[in-house]
């Protein structure tokens, strides 16, 4: 009886020892030497794996951070300055000053503004619709309304407005990771400098057609008249391909341009209401 017990113990011990030896050699053979700071940096990152930094995930970004010599071009838009400062301490470097940004939808082609010329009946995907044709309106630059951007948002900062059929960005939740910018096949979404009280002034249009066709396709299209360019005291507005663009880093929110726009393509968001300001019902799309 006791011999059976002893044999069992011996057998199991031998097996255990054998396994341990094998494991040891395997571990030696496949050993990966890794900078321990990568782990520390990964922990400091938000861990959303959103890809907003341009890398496939937080760990890949951490590797890039550790390998790099400066923070030039490396920024975690989600964690912002705080996270970057923490990482700077870990890596013993100087953090770069990065301006906080926010995503903005540059299209106001609601069914009221841009009349539907056809109904899209394919797969609910902007990319599919974009590859197919110009879209449901006469404007081949505008929002397709299938919500690829909303689907790409990992922070619940977007939703599709059922009335305007346009995406809405919730400023307080948006971390400017840029996922929606990449998801949009028409490049309607732009990351702009975040201003105080989330105020913004921007051209809510991407139409590069000449004035006539642009206006015909959408009531609030930028027709490329150039009035805003002339009135801007800070040279923040440029005109290219019949489309105005307000550089958010130069814009001082002086509000001179918006009243000049004959079509109402320039939107002002977050300002106190002016007495003589004309009603802008489409504001709901972006506010």
């Amino acid at each position: 009886m006791s011999s059976t017990v002893l044999l069992t113990i011996a057998m199991l011990s031998a097996l255990g020892l054998l396994a341990a030896v094998i494991l040891y050699f395997v571990a030696q053979k496949f050993k990966v030497i890794e900078d321990p700071r990568i782990d520390t940096v990964t922990e400091a990152l938000p861990g959303a794996n959103c890809g907003g930094c341009g890398y496939t995930g937080c760990r890949a970004f951490a590797e890039a951070l550790v390998k790099s010599t400066s923070f030039e071009g490396l920024n975690c838009p989600v964690g912002g300055a705080e996270t970057m400062a923490k990482i700077a301490i870990i890596l013993d470097r100087q953090p770069l000053a990065v301006e906080p940004k926010v995503a903005v939808v540059r299209c106001n082609g609601t069914p009221d503004n841009a009349t539907r010329t056809s109904y899209y009946d394919g797969a609910v995907s902007c990319r599919v619709a974009h590859a197919l044709y110009g879209g449901q309106t006469g404007c081949q630059y505008g929002c397709l309304g299938c919500g690829d951007c909303v689907e790409s948002c990992k922070f619940d900062a977007m939703y599709m407005d059922p009335v305007t059929e346009l995406p809405v960005i919730l400023d307080d939740k948006c971390v400017a990771c840029g996922a929606c910018v990449k998801a949009c096949p028409r490049n309607i979404i732009e990351l702009r400098k975040r201003n105080k009280k989330d105020r913004k002034i921007f051209i809510s249009c991407m139409n590069k057609d000449k004035g006539g066709p642009a206006r015909k396709a959408c009531k609030v299209a930028c027709i490329g008249c150039g009035k805003c360019v002339k009135v801007c005291p800070y040279e923040a507005i440029t005109m290219e391909n019949n489309l105005a663009f307000i550089d958010s880093t130069k814009c001082k929110l002086c509000r001179k341009c918006a009243p000049e726009c004959p079509t109402g393509a320039i939107l002002e968001i977050g300002f106190p209401v002016k007495e003589a300001k004309p009603a802008e019902p489409a504001d709901a799309a972006v506010s």
Binding site: G122, A123, S125, R127, V128, A131
Partner: peptide
């Protein structure tokens, strides 16, 4: 299912 819609997208 819109199989081809997505296949076309993937193929491109």
């Amino acid at each position: 299912r819109p199989l081809l819609d997505y296949i076309r997208l993937g193929k491109a």
